[in-house]
Simulated scan of single mutants.
Amino acid sequence: MADKTYLDLRIRKTRKAIRNAFIDLLAEKELNKISINAITLKAEINRATFYLHYKDINDLIDSILDDLLADLKKILIDKFEESYKPGDELTSLILLLEHIAENSHMYKVLLVTKNIPYFTPKLMDLLYELILTTTEQQSIQKTEDFLTVDTPSDIAAWYGTSAIIGTISMWLGNDMPYTPKYLAERIIQLNPFIPANNKKI
C-alpha cells in the first residue's frame, strides 16, 4: 500500500512538473513553437518520462483542460444539481474567482494570452450551463429602476457568460487588483437580469 501511495505521489509530481513547464512556455511563446524537447528540458525530465504520461502535446493540452473544467464543474454546476436558492450565484461566483486566483498564472495564460484558443469557448459553455440553470429557476427581470420586462433565459445566459468571462480576463490582465469576493459582489450588482431583491450584498 505504501509503495502504491508513493507511486501515485510520484506520478502526480511528475505530471505537475510537465504541466507547469508547458504553461510557463505558453506564457512566452505561441503554441506551435513549443516542442516536447523544450517541455522536458524545463521540467527537468527526459523524453521517455514525458511519453509515459502523455502521447503528445495535444494529449497534454486535453488533459490540462479536462482537469481544469472538471474542477470548475465541481465548483459551479454540481451544487446547483442538488438544490438552488437565491444568493447561490454569488457564492458560486466567489468560489470560481477564488479558484482562478489560486491558479492565476495558468488562467492568465489561457484566458489573456489566448495561446490555446479553444479553452475560452469551453469555459463559456460551462458558465452558460450554470447561468441558464440559475436563470430558469428564478424570475428573470430588469432591476426595479426599469420597467419589468421578461427576458428569455438564453439571452440572460449569453449576456452573463460574456460579461463574466470578459471581466475575469481584464481582472487577470490587470494583476487582480480586487479580491475575488469584492469582484463577485460587483458583478452581481451590475447584472441587469438578476432581480433587485437578490442583489443585496
Score class of each variant (00 low, 15 high):
F119D: 00
A17D: 14
I61C: 10
L97A: 06
S35R: 14
S162R: 09
L96Q: 02
K74T: 11
I11C: 05
N37F: 12
L126W: 05
L52V: 14
K79Y: 07
I75F: 10
A17S: 15
D78W: 03
Y54F: 13
D125G: 04
A48E: 13
A17C: 03
M106P: 02
D154G: 03
L69I: 15
S83G: 03
Q137W: 01
P177W: 06
H105A: 09
Q137I: 00
I100P: 09
S83V: 11
M176F: 03
I11W: 01
T161N: 11
S104Y: 02
D66K: 14
T40F: 01
V149C: 05
L123K: 03
A2V: 15
I201Q: 08
D145L: 12
N103E: 11
D24M: 06
D59K: 04
I131D: 04
I57N: 01
E185Y: 00
T148P: 02
P121F: 09
L96Y: 01
L93M: 14
L72Y: 10
D88T: 14
L147N: 04
I75A: 10
L190D: 07
N46D: 15
R186P: 04
H99V: 05
F50Q: 09
S83Q: 12
K199A: 03
M124Q: 10
R19S: 13
E102T: 03
A157I: 07
D125S: 12
S92F: 01
K114I: 01
F50T: 07
S83C: 03
N32E: 13
N115L: 02
A157E: 05
I165Y: 09
D150F: 07
F22V: 08
Y118I: 06
N191H: 07
D154C: 05
K199L: 05
I23S: 09
D150V: 04
R15E: 12
K142L: 12
Y118T: 13
I18T: 05
D8E: 12
N191L: 07
I131Q: 06
A101F: 05
T5R: 12
P192F: 02
I164T: 13
P121Y: 14
E102D: 11
I140P: 04
I64N: 08
V149S: 08
A38D: 14
T49Y: 11
T14I: 13
W158V: 13
L93T: 15
D125P: 00
G166C: 09
K33F: 05
N58E: 13
Y118E: 08
L90Y: 06
L52A: 14
N32R: 12
D88C: 10
T113A: 01
L97W: 05
W158D: 15
Y178H: 12
A70H: 09
T91Q: 06
D88S: 14
A163P: 00
T179Q: 12
I77A: 04
L90N: 08
D150I: 08
M106R: 08
D56N: 15
I36M: 00
N191A: 03
